[in-house]
Each structure stands twice: as structure tokens, then as C-alpha cells.
Simulated assay, not measured.
Amino acid sequence: MNSKEQDESSVIRNQPGDIGKLHKEQVALYWDFENIHAAVLEEKYGEGVYRKVFNDLQEPVVNIAAIVRYASNLGNISVNRAYANWERFGSYRFSLLEHSIDLIQLFPAGGKGKNGADIRLAIDVMQDMQTYKHIKIVVIVSGDSDYISLVQRCKQCGREVFGVGVQRASSQYLMKSCSKFKFYHTLLDDARYLLVNAIYNLLANEEKACMLKARLHPAITRLYPTFDVGNYGFSSFVEFLNECRDLLSISQGDNDQMISLSEQGFKLLQEEKTGVNSLMPN
């Protein structure tokens, strides 16, 4: 290679757009999938629900894309591995495949249905820490206190550990052990707030109590032109609305459903925005 070719090669290898990629931290993402699924399910339907449907094909309630998006914001995901008895989680198939998650099948041992995910996950994490020295950030998707010792060991090995779990189902001691702990619902709250704020503004401006469902998507994109549900892990606006049903009061109109804010929707708005206390339903 002559000097001119060497200079050109050097320029190509050092394009400014590549610098960030070269220096991003490497992330290992581990899912105790049954733990996060059960926690989200009971957050949605109430405590004790998971035990009642334990042997059934499970409803896909976990927003996998939102968690992957959070982890990818920390760096490049080098390891993405989930542990569960996948016989009951077939409804997640396409989302798991879409995000290239390595699935570890764990059949339950004994009659109590315990699949031993915590033990297998911990063993794999420690092996990966020894094998993949370039991994600097570990993300554990679980709120189980059984992972406290694993978190401490990872930090002793010089890794940062980020946890993701449902607030009411996560151990406070695990949260304190992690470098940072992210509550699952906060991964979606930004989009949820934009939705309720758009509804509130439109209804307030028009002095109406409810709006046609068909007007909702144009209303939110008019207020927030860059809004895209794909950025929050949803494949469509309809899927996003289904996730936000607790924020909405829905009734059937003549030709379309009518939308207004539910008490939970006003509560979220009140938490994020001052001066709306008087709007809360009696």
C-alpha cells in the first residue's frame, strides 16, 4: 500500500460518525423473564393473578422493546439472554426474535414450578464476566432479592450494574445494591405523559369533555411533531393505546369511540404539570 492509500485508509477508519460507536460501552443484558412478566402482570391485574394463570399460555404484557431500548442507550448490547420455561411464553415469540434475544430453556424441577432461573443466570453472568472482559455494564431485568450477591460480585469485578423491575415487586435492598435501578413503568411514562397532555390540551382548547378516537393520533403529532410510538417500543399507535388504557375513559359514540382522561390519566398529568388540580374528577 502506497502512502496515498494509507492516508485514505486512515481517513476512512476515523470518520467522525464512527467515533461514538468505537467508544460506546459494551453491555450484557440478562432477563429473569418469568420474574418481570409476573410483576408486570400483577401490576396490571392485581396481586395474586399470576398464581391463578400460572399454567396457562401467558398474555404478552412486558414491553420488550422498551427494555432493550433502555439497555441500548447505555451502550452496545453484546449479550442479550433471557431465562424462563418458554413453554408458557410463546405469545412473546415475535418480539423475542425481533430483538435477537438468546433464549435459555429452564424446565421446572420438582412440584413447586421453580425453574431455577436465578441460579443459572448468576452462573452465566460470572462466566461471561471472566470470558468477555470488554463488557463494562451489566443489566439485570428482575426485582428479586436473590440477585443481591450477584450484583455485589459484578461490582467487585469492576462492572456497573443496572437493574430493571416493577416498583412494587422489587426488593429495596436489590435497588440499593445496583449502580442504578430503573422502574419498568418509567420506561413508558414519557410517551404516556405526551398522550394525556395532548388530550388535555385539545379538550381544554375546544371546551369539550371528550373527543373522537380518530382525532387522537393527529392531535398528538400536531402538538409533538417528532412523536413516534416506535421510539417507545410499540409497533403501532393502536398497540400504544392498548398499553395506555388505564389513562383513558372510553365510551361508544355514534360512529366512533369517544376518548377522555380517566382518573389515572389526570393523576399522571397532575404529577407532571402544575395547575390542573381543579380538573380532577370528583
Rank of each mutant, 00 (worst) to 15 (best):
E160R: 06
Y50S: 15
N55Q: 10
S251M: 04
K44E: 01
F181V: 03
I137S: 12
E263N: 08
M211Q: 07
D56F: 10
F89G: 02
L241H: 06
L247N: 03
A84G: 10
A109Q: 09
L269A: 11
L150E: 04
K24R: 14
L74V: 05
K114I: 15
N255L: 04
A219P: 14
E25I: 15
F33K: 01
T221R: 13
N73A: 02
G163C: 00
N231I: 01
A219H: 15
E272N: 13
A122N: 12
D189P: 07
A39L: 13
V53D: 00
N80G: 09
P16M: 14
A204T: 12
M1T: 10
Y184E: 02
P16W: 12
D228F: 11
I36D: 04
Y232L: 06
P281L: 03
R192S: 08
G75M: 10
A117R: 06
K182T: 01
E272I: 09
E8C: 08
N277W: 14
E5A: 05
T274K: 05
K24Y: 13
I36A: 02
E239D: 02
R81N: 05
E207N: 15
N55F: 10
F54Q: 00
S91N: 14
N73S: 04
G48M: 09
D190F: 06
L22S: 01
E243K: 13
I250L: 09
S260R: 11
H134T: 02
I119N: 02
I199R: 14
R120S: 11
L279N: 03
T274P: 07
A122S: 12
R69Y: 13
R215P: 07
S170V: 05
A209D: 13
Q167P: 00
N35E: 09
N14I: 06
Y70Q: 00
G143H: 11
D246H: 00
R81K: 05
N115L: 11
H217E: 04
I101F: 13
R13F: 03
V68M: 12
V53Y: 05
A66Y: 04
S100W: 12
Y224P: 00
Q270E: 02
K24P: 10
M280F: 10
G158L: 11
N277P: 11
D254I: 08
A71D: 07
A198S: 10
R159T: 12
L29G: 01
F234H: 03
Y92M: 05
D189S: 08
L279Y: 00
G158Q: 11
G116Y: 13
A191C: 13
F181W: 02
I36S: 04
S9I: 09
T274S: 05
I220A: 00
R215V: 08
L269Q: 14
G113C: 15
M211K: 08
G165I: 00
E42I: 06
I140A: 12
N282Y: 12
K180P: 12
S260G: 11
F234P: 00
I135V: 09
A38K: 15
D254R: 06
F234I: 01
S251N: 02
S100K: 12
F266H: 09
A82S: 02
W31V: 02
I123N: 11
G48W: 09
L57C: 05
D56G: 09
K180F: 14
K273T: 06
